[in-house]
Amino acid sequence: KWEEIAERLREEFNINPEEAREAVEKAGGNEEEARRIVKK
């Protein structure tokens, strides 16, 4: 599940997989929260 979210974030925000994974981890697997983290 987290991998899927990280993949979507990576494609959408054009970030590297590591950044995407970190955002999802910080968000506890919550996609909306992960998006907010990435946008900062």
Rank of each mutant, 00 (worst) to 15 (best):
E19M: 13
R36N: 15
E12N: 04
E31A: 06
N16V: 08
A6N: 03
A23P: 00
A23V: 08
R10P: 01
E32T: 12
F13S: 02
L9M: 04
K1G: 09
P17K: 14
R21A: 10
I5P: 00
A27N: 00
N30L: 07
P17Y: 15
V24C: 05
R21Y: 12
R35S: 04
E19L: 13
E18Q: 11
K26W: 03
F13T: 03
A23E: 02
P17S: 13
E33F: 06
V24Y: 03
K1L: 14
I15Q: 00
E4L: 11
E25M: 14
K26I: 12
R8K: 10
K39F: 12
E18A: 07
R10Q: 13
E3V: 10
K26A: 14
N16T: 15
R8S: 06
R36V: 09
F13V: 02
W2Y: 08
E3A: 12
L9P: 01
N30D: 11
G28V: 09
E3H: 13
K40G: 15
A23I: 11
E18S: 12
E22G: 09
A27P: 00
R36P: 02
I37E: 08
N30R: 05
N14S: 11
R8G: 04
E31M: 09
W2H: 07
E31D: 03
I37H: 07
K39Y: 13
I37P: 02
G29K: 02
V38M: 04
G28Y: 10
K1V: 15
I15T: 04
K26C: 07
R35E: 04
R35P: 00
E3T: 11
K40L: 15
V38T: 06
N14K: 12
E4V: 10
E4P: 06
A34L: 04
A34E: 01
R8T: 05
I15H: 00
N16W: 06
R35D: 01
V24T: 05
W2Q: 04
R35A: 06
E12M: 07
W2G: 04
A6S: 07
E18D: 12
W2M: 07
G29Q: 03
R36M: 10
E22S: 13
K39T: 12
P17N: 12
W2I: 07
R35F: 08
E22W: 14
R10F: 06
N30V: 09
K1H: 11
K40N: 15
F13P: 01
E19V: 13
I37V: 08
E31K: 04
R36F: 06
A20C: 04
E11S: 13
A23T: 04
E22K: 08
A20G: 02
L9A: 00
F13K: 01
V38K: 01
E3M: 11
R10D: 03
V24M: 06
E7L: 13
E32S: 09
K40S: 10
K26Y: 06
A23Q: 03
E3I: 09
I15M: 06
E19I: 11
I37M: 09
E12L: 09
E3P: 08
E19S: 09
A27M: 03
E11F: 13
N30M: 06
V38H: 03
E31P: 06
I15N: 01
E25F: 12
I37R: 06
E33P: 01
E25V: 13
E7A: 10
E4S: 09
E11L: 10
